[in-house]
Simulated scan of single mutants.
Amino acid sequence: MSDHTPVTHDLDKLFEKIKDVRIAMLTTFNEQHQLHSRPMGTIKPEADGSLLFLTDKESAKVFEVKKDSQVNLSYGDPGSNTYASVTGRASTYRDQAKIDELWNESFKAWFPKGKDDPSITILKVTIDQAEYWDTPSSLLSVAYGYVRSVLTGKKSEDNDVNEHAQVQR
């Protein structure tokens, strides 16, 4: 593995990696300042580079981010060997026009009253930094890394078969 992880400021590259990973694990700090994680459905990235989620205004996560806004989002897609970790600051707000824009019928599982349910609030994560790993899962890619290692006597570097970078704002 490489001792140096490339750094980029390209959030679009991060969003491209996570666009098909519908569920993220959101980690907050609970009242005892212990880590508390739960799955959240990512809706879409915003033009300002933040990520939005819909949640219930009475949920524990809303109270937790009011007390400590530092959060982590973990994305993983084992099928495509794509993983990402996003660190940022969370806030919540209610904006009916934005809820209308983000709404799709699958949200009725959590909000049976529909998009006008007054308990719906938006959880916004403003990204501070992120890191992603994208490893091609093809046998050819793995074979290339193996052959290169055998021929050169050096271990495979991340950039031989992997794409790995830190994203900073």
Rank of each mutant, 00 (worst) to 15 (best):
N104H: 09
I23M: 13
K44C: 10
R169V: 12
H164M: 13
A84Y: 08
P45E: 00
T126A: 11
K98I: 00
S80A: 14
S69Q: 13
V62F: 06
R38D: 04
P39V: 11
K44N: 09
V71G: 02
A24Y: 00
L51C: 04
I120Q: 03
A165C: 09
A109M: 09
F111R: 04
S91Q: 11
T42C: 08
Q129I: 02
Y146I: 14
L140H: 08
A97I: 04
K61E: 02
S138Q: 11
T8Y: 01
I120D: 01
S137N: 13
G88Q: 06
Y83G: 06
E58S: 14
D48F: 01
A109Y: 07
L52T: 05
M1R: 10
R169D: 01
K154E: 15
D100T: 11
T135L: 13
R148L: 09
F107M: 07
T126S: 10
Q166H: 14
F29D: 07
Y83E: 09
Y93A: 08
N162H: 10
K154A: 11
V147G: 01
D117S: 04
Q96C: 00
V62N: 03
D128G: 08
T28L: 03
N162R: 12
M25Q: 08
K19H: 12
D20Y: 04
R94M: 08
E157H: 10
L51N: 05
I23N: 00
